[in-house]
Structure formats: structure tokens, C-alpha cells
């Protein structure tokens, strides 16, 4: 790998995602920011398990040679599945909020405060 390129891109993605979550005033964009952070964490886990010139960790019909670590990939798969469930639920909340409030602006979606 060239230096630490994957890890640097992880940090950039995390910062982008957090920026969207803190400064974007649209509920959908907040969810998008969350998904960007999630992709960054997934990329981090996959690149942790990367072995130079490694192949997929499947023993059946394997051509031999180094394999990448299987555990981070299993973790990433689990995390992706959880991420899909989270995004689906958050976006359906957005639909309901738009239906009842008529807006997705975070400054207006605050009938609960104090």
C-alpha cells in the first residue's frame, strides 16, 4: 500500500461525514453524513485486515499464497447489514416527519426542546 493512503482517506471521510452531521440543516443530509461515517469505519476495518498481494480468504480452490484477514471482513459485513437497517429506519422517520411537519429543516423540526 502507498504509505497510509487508506487510513488517510478514512480520516477525510470521517471528517466529511461529521461535517455534514453538524452543519447541514437537512435531515436527509444528516443521514447521508451518518452513512459516510459508516463507510469510513468499514473502510478502516477492511484496510486493517489487508495483506499485501493477498487473496480472498476462501480455502476452496485457493491458488495458494497470502490471504487477507477474514475477521475484519466478517465484522465489516455485520456492520454493513446494521448500517442498512439504520439508514432504512432513519429515512422512514424522515418520510414521517415530512408528512406531519411539512419540512425537513432541522431548525424547524424541534417541537421538543428545553
Amino acid at each position: 500500500m502507498i504509505f497510509n493512503a487508506p487510513f488517510i482517506s478514512v480520516m477525510i471521510l470521517v471528517i466529511f461525514g461529521l461535517y455534514a452531521m453538524v452543519f447541514r440543516r437537512n435531515l436527509i443530509k444528516v443521514v447521508i453524513g451518518l452513512d459516510i461515517v459508516e463507510s469510513a469505519v468499514n473502510l478502516f476495518m477492511v484496510s486493517l485486515g489487508y495483506v499485501k498481494n493477498g487473496i480472498a480468504p476462501i480455502y476452496t480452490n485457493s491458488p495458494g499464497g497470502a490471504m487477507v484477514l477474514p475477521t475484519p471482513q466478517a465484522l465489516t459485513l455485520t456492520s454493513i447489514v446494521i448500517g442498512v437497517a439504520t439508514s432504512a429506519m432513519l429515512l422512514s422517520f424522515c418520510i414521517l416527519i415530512y408528512r406531519y411537519y411539512g419540512t425537513l429543516d432541522t431548525r424547524k423540526v424541534r417541537r421538543l426542546r428545553e
Binding site: V14, L34, V37, F93, Y101, L112
Partner: peptide, 23 residues
Amino acid sequence: GKAVEAAFKYAVVSSIGALMILF
């Protein structure tokens, strides 16, 4: 819509928290 708003806020903060834990 109020309960949905509450649930949205709860889900966003707990998801970002869970991602930090995963990190």
C-alpha cells in the same frame, strides 16, 4: 409527528455513537 422526531434524534445520536464504538 413528535414521537417520530424524538425517535429520529435518538436513532441518529445512538448510531453515530455506535459507529464511534466500532471505530
